[in-house]
Design a protein around this nucleic acid. Structure first.
Lengths: 346, 346
DNA sequence: CACGACCGGGAGAGCGCTCCCCTGTGCGCG
DNA sequence: CGCGCACAGGGGAGCGCTCTCCCGGTCGTG
């Protein structure tokens, strides 16, 4: 015998007014006599009324919910399905993203629905979820180039905002960082320190962000008389950074500066460097990218290019909100500035 | 001009049947003639119909959504609000939790809503969210003893399941680990290795889990002729583990075995040990707890007590589901077994 | 051959809310 | 003093769905 939850009707009866008036008070709209307002609030208090979300959504056609989607580019093979979520969350990057999104959403009493879309089926589920109005829009974080999700959502005109420019062109809004400038900052810092034999460990080069960090770095080095920069491709993980560094060292023992395309890889780089008996930054200077937790957990703490993840994530949420409220608007993009954070590693 | 989404009515007209029949097909219930079923499916396909979640929820009184709540015990001071989410997500523990929850929910086409409840206001928001039927129940992960949320939910008879036995007694279901047994395993392993001068770094002792790991360890040591075990309290972070170890070492340079109440602290312990010139495991054996990512990222890889987080999280979701479906059931608890994973550190 | 059980399918009543529209009252202004 | 306007508040439709009821037809069975 679960006691029925009180409805607007009940409150209205209790307050001696109509449903409509209670609704007005609850939603704080239009001019309602202060006395009546007080009476209604009293009635709400007494009945313990809580508005029913489903009923409201039904008529407003708004779920007041947004999806936070981490998507990959996998097919339907289920091999890695369970690992995907764990791997994504293990990335320190993710905590800052959630933090930024939650920071924006919370004052609006909204909460993100967490979805992972690493397989075709999962991607279709995301589309279905949005189509049935369970969420009003999606914040997309692609972990791979070639992710078809943005295009799928654009196709259905479902509101969404991406983190980073889509690798596959799609007419969707996104928030990104001035990666080139960030990489330039790193290059200039290394040069200013007097590094002469510089290498870079890139992210997966099919990702636009990785590509731009590389070219930004190369261009700056070239402009300062270093037309060729040693480089190796990593996978944005610490281990990949460590082994890429080992590979580089094998051919070029005299490297004195390294720019890694993210902090995790920079951490791996430091590990390899230590193991090879080199000191950071005395023998080799290391610069990371992101300014995520590994940057200050690392020994020595990493000099890195800061990406204002929280602000970027909040901007994504804001853009999405505007898109949801404003109806069909044309794709927009917001580009944030990178900033060099100098710590001990370079 | 956003084209209206097709409704059941539209599909029914298209298929030449009634709304009720389409509903039956969509929900796969009752006996519907295969021919008609095919016709309806065709009509759904053609119209691109997607059932409206709000309308369904309104009548079924189910949101088909559950909240994943990480709660603290803070008051309304906003000082740390933004950091909370980031700090929680940084814990490797969390990825495994989400992974387990998502693994259970996904086959049911459900997705968790992520909520943080570290302040009084945030906690009230969680209660309100559930009361208005936005979610059918909550999975609670308390980061502090003294968390009032479980009691608040129990008070309102809102379905919820906790991770770990509540520190403040409350009539709610929970899933937990046999911490004592886990600690016993660690103690026995250390003894079997021949450690004679053993210490333990505990978690915050107001947490039942930390308390039980400590007593389980002490009891086993006592039973094997070591009535007194050195101990220091840590905060479940790497840094706290490192400094607790440094403190212990200062007074007792001859320690040859350490049991840390989680992997993060064990990692800190290893760091301090290395810095003091001691080798792990040759000079000092180290055992962690959890078997989370730091365990294998650590050098050397950590021998640790495995906590089957994914299974535990999935069990929580299952328990919650049963509670939601079954109406008012009495609190249940499920206790998982711990398992020793032997790697290089001990 | 008759009667009833059973099953496929339709009609219709809401679920709780918002919002449009209308009525009634108070007040300003001509 | 009367007309009209503005605004507070009520009435009611309807959002899209589920689910109970009911009806008509087809069997099985005595």
């Amino acid at each position: 015998m679960t006691r029925q939850a009180p409805t607007l009707e009940d409150v209205a009866r209790e307050a001696g007014v109509s449903r409509a008036t209670v609704s007005r008070v609850v939603n704080g709209i239009r001019n309602v006599d202060p006395a009546i307002q007080a009476a209604v609030r009293g009635a709400i208090e007494r009945t313990g009324y809580a508005p029913n979300r489903a009923a409201r959504s039904l008529v407003t056609r708004r779920a007041e919910t947004i999806a936070l989607v981490v998507s990959g580019a996998g097919d339907d093979s289920e091999s890695e399905q369970n690992l995907f979520a764990a791997r994504v969350l293990a990335d320190p990057f993710f905590g800052r993203v959630v933090s930024g999104v939650v920071g924006f959403l919370r004052p609006r009493s909204m909460y993100p629905v967490l979805m992972f879309a690493e397989t075709g089926a999962a991607r279709r589920d995301v589309v279905a979820y949005l189509r049935q109005g369970s969420a009003d829009g999606a914040l997309i974080f692609s972990t791979h180039a070639g992710d078809p999700l943005p295009a799928m959502l654009a196709e259905e005109s479902l509101p969404c905002v991406l983190f980073g420019r889509p690798a596959l062109p799609a007419p969707v809004s996104y928030v990104d960082l001035a990666h080139r400038d960030g990489a330039r900052l790193a290059a200039e810092h290394l040069l200013a320190r007097g590094c002469r034999r510089v290498a870079t460990i890139t992210g997966p080069l099919d990702l636009p962000a990785a590509q731009e960090r590389l070219t930004g770095f190369q261009d700056t080095m070239a402009r300062h008389g270093h037309p060729y920069v040693l480089s190796a491709e990593g996978g944005f993980t610490a281990d990949s950074g460590a082994s890429a560094m080992a590979g580089l060292l094998a051919g070029h023992a005299d490297i004195d500066g390294v720019f890694a395309a993210n902090d995790l890889m920079a951490q791996g780089v430091c590990r390899t460097l230590h193991e090879s008996g080199r000191r950071v930054p005395d023998d080799v200077a290391v610069i990371g990218f992101d300014d995520s937790s590994p940057a200050y957990d690392c020994r020595p703490p990493l000099t890195t290019v800061r990406q204002p993840m929280e602000e970027m994530a909040a901007a994504m949420a804001r853009l999405l909100q505007e898109q949801i409220e404003g109806g069909r608007t044309r794709p927009t993009s917001v580009i944030f500035d990178a900033e060099l954070v100098v710590r001990a590693s370079a």
